[in-house]
Amino acid sequence: MRSLGATFDPKRNGLNFVRLLLAVTVIGWHSFPLTGHDIEYAPLRQLVGEIGVDGFFAISGFLIVSSWVRDPNWARYLRARALRILPAFWVCLLVTAFVIAPLVAGVLGGDNITYVVYNAGLRIFQEDIAGTPLGVPYEGVWNGSLWTLWWEFLCYLGVMTLGLFGMLRWRWTTTVLFGIALAAAAATTAGVVDNWYAAQGARFGLMFLAGAMVWQWKDRVLVNAWTVVGAAVVLMGSLLIPNYRLLAALPVAFLVMVAGANIRTPRLALRNDVSYGVYIYAFPAQQVVAYAGVDQVALMAVLATLLTFPLAIASWFLVEKPAMRLRARRPEPAPRVDAF
């Protein structure tokens, strides 16, 4: 039996493919509200509507903590994180405001400018542009995916803070924090704490910490048929409760990382990561399809995917990949995480 640490090769894995699949599932989920539909069956709604973003956060927790431990330098760390998220995010805002909205909704004015300026700091303050999109099932929101990036960056800052205090040297740090996030998620789910920010913070923090915890215990996490099937069974069973993460946060983090570690087929071990571009451009692409009058979920998903991929590919090659070349080189020696 091999551990996840022995199975996962940082330089040869299928995480880009896994992230791409997760991004496509987000397109599938958004195709319901953007065509005026919903998934009434709660377990299926959780599976389709939440696994995609939760999987992204789990993978981020695994990789970002690994990145800090490899090179605990706050300046290089922040530079790398900012260059990965911000340039493509800013370009997406500009494309939405000055290309998509004018061409599709016919709006061009001060609101196009404020849409970019007010949202440039990752926190989304303005979702519409002069009231548009209008006449579609989901009005007043051009990009309903971007709001999660603020929470993602807060997780990055949390890792940096823990690292600066030397707390990531101990495996139990993320374990204790995971327990706190789990308690917070239980409290918000039960209504003991009735606050949107607390609920979202608990959700994203729990999934990010699940990935971080899997990384810190990767040398003791066994990967075999029993652990994979067991994690899948827990995941499917957890969908029956109101917040599946209370039981399945760690199984989801384990499953996405195992999937990434075991996909090594050259065609699937994608060297180019277009998942971020798919994630940030899919929603405005879907609103374009909605403006065309498409009200069928499956057709929306297919057409929006076809429209999104060229934008995502352009984002990767023209913005994301060049920006990532600006990151400072990191030293190779990796500090060992203590076992206590």
Rank of each mutant, 00 (worst) to 15 (best):
A199M: 07
A199T: 15
L209I: 07
R245K: 09
M213S: 04
W215E: 11
Q200R: 12
N224H: 06
L222I: 14
L246M: 08
I241V: 15
P242F: 01
A198N: 01
V234W: 03
V229N: 07
I241E: 11
G230L: 07
A225L: 14
A183F: 00
V214E: 05
W226N: 07
T188D: 07
P242C: 08
D219R: 10
I241Q: 15
V233I: 15
A202P: 03
V193D: 03
W196R: 09
M207Y: 02
V233T: 14
Y244T: 12
A232I: 06
L209E: 11
V192W: 07
A185L: 10
I241Y: 04
V233S: 10
A225N: 10
F204K: 04
A184Y: 01
A210S: 15
L240M: 15
M236K: 05
Q200H: 13
M207A: 08
A231Q: 12
V233H: 02
A185G: 08
Y197A: 13
A184N: 07
W217E: 01
T227V: 12
T189N: 02
A199Y: 01
P242S: 02
V214Y: 02
Y197I: 13
A198M: 08
I241C: 09
G237A: 13
N224S: 12
A184R: 06
W196Y: 07
L209D: 11
A187K: 02
V221C: 10
A190D: 10
D219E: 14
L209T: 12
A231G: 10
L206E: 07
W217Y: 15
D219V: 02
W217A: 01
A210L: 13
M213L: 12
N195H: 14
A187G: 06
R203D: 02
R203E: 01
V234E: 08
A184V: 09
R203F: 02
L209C: 10
A184L: 15
Y197P: 02
A232E: 07
A202T: 06
L246T: 06
G230V: 09
F204P: 08
N195G: 05
Y197N: 11
A232Y: 02
R203H: 04
N224I: 15
K218V: 03
A185T: 12
V221N: 04
W215Q: 09
G205C: 01
A232Q: 05
Y244D: 06
W215Y: 15
D219F: 01
A186G: 05
A186C: 03
T188P: 12
W217V: 07
D219A: 08
L235Y: 08
Q200W: 09
G191A: 04
G201Q: 12
V233F: 05
M213R: 07
A181E: 08
F204W: 14
G205T: 12
L240P: 04
G211E: 07
R220G: 15
F208R: 05
V192T: 09
F208C: 00
A187W: 00
Y197D: 07
A190L: 06
W217H: 14
W217F: 14
L182Q: 01
Y244K: 00
Y197S: 13
A181V: 12
Q200S: 10
Y197W: 13
L182E: 12
T227R: 07
A210F: 00
A198G: 00
L235T: 09
A212V: 14
W215F: 15
S238H: 08
V223W: 12
M213D: 09
V214R: 04
L206A: 09
A190K: 02
M213C: 10
F208S: 04
A212D: 09
A190I: 03
N195A: 00
V223A: 11
A187T: 11
